[in-house]
């Protein structure tokens, strides 16, 4: 039996099918082989659960510890970690929640939970993002009139925008107290455009208008300077604002 074949059987056992590996191992101490394999499955699950608890802390407050853990463990069991970087785990958790918000599902009482997870994912991403560099105005000034229209801009590594159907930026801010749990809120559905950035180590959301949202999205998708300033009548002013706020930190030809 090769090492690779043994590790394949181990992988199957971690997915819940331990029939092949059982005959090849023996449990420690008084543990049966099933119990020993369960220790390893549990180690991985608890690690991933802990990551989700930290990354989606407001979601956890909104639905309570028990409900959150049930939801998160179901996610962990169906979404193995595909990255060495634990901070990358949970990217699909907002979509996973969305699928459980339909009428008749227990989570329908918190219809904004998926949007909150979407926001929290961007916040945790901002926390670990690279530090910003300043916009090089002098290099930009040296561009010729022929070069300028084709220039593309780059966002600060921590900056991201999201359009959500519920006012989750406000709900998130309300939950930044010391309280461990808060009751689900009765809130009205309302479209919000939110920008996430990190200031003084702390990621935070702020509400922006639709024009700024469109501009940041256009920059993020690699649209040219000429395209961007033609989006709206005041796009050139919005771009100036974004650069002054250091949301835009670079450009390339």
């Amino acid at each position: 039996m090769t090492l690779r074949a043994l590790q394949h059987d181990y992988y199957q056992a971690m997915q819940g099918n331990d029939s092949a590996l059982k005959a090849r191992v023996q449990g420690a101490g008084d543990l049966s082989t099933e119990q020993a394999l369960a220790v390893y499955r549990n180690n991985t699950e608890q690690t991933l659960l802990s990551v989700l608890q930290q990354s989606f802390s407001v979601c956890r407050m909104l639905v309570g510890e028990r409900c959150f853990n049930q939801l998160a463990l179901r996610y962990c069991r169906t979404h193995p970690s595909s990255s060495l970087d634990l901070n990358a785990y949970g990217e699909l958790f907002p979509n996973f929640i969305d699928q459980r918000l339909a009428p008749g599902e227990p989570l329908q009482v918190v219809p904004y939970l998926g949007d909150m997870a979407r926001l929290e994912w961007l916040l945790q991403r901002a926390y670990h993002a690279a530090n910003r560099t300043g916009f090089d105005f002098s290099r930009f000034a040296r561009l010729t009139p022929e070069q300028q229209p084709d220039v593309r801009f780059t966002l600060a590594p921590d900056v991201a925008v999201v359009a959500v159907q519920w006012p989750v930026a406000d709900i998130w801010t309300m939950h930044q107290s010391d309280a461990d749990t808060l009751s689900p809120l009765l809130v009205e559905q309302a479209l919000q455009h939110v920008l996430v950035e990190r200031a003084a180590y702390r990621p935070q959301p702020s509400i922006i208008d639709r024009q700024m949202y469109d501009l940041v999205r256009a920059i993020d998708s690699g649209r040219s300077f000429a395209d961007i300033v033609s989006l709206e009548p005041d796009s050139a002013q919005k771009l100036t604002d974004a650069i002054q706020r250091n949301w835009v930190t670079g450009f390339y030809d």
């Binding site: 090769t2 090492l3 590790q7 970690s81």
Partner: peptide
């Protein structure tokens, strides 16, 4: 070992103490 086919266990999984594992 801690991964298989890019599935990461985030755990320290034991190796068999074999000649093949040793060479590997």
């Amino acid at each position: 070992f801690s991964q298989f086919r890019r599935h990461h266990y985030h755990d320290l999984c034991p190796l068999p103490f074999t000649h093949e594992a040793l060479r590997h």
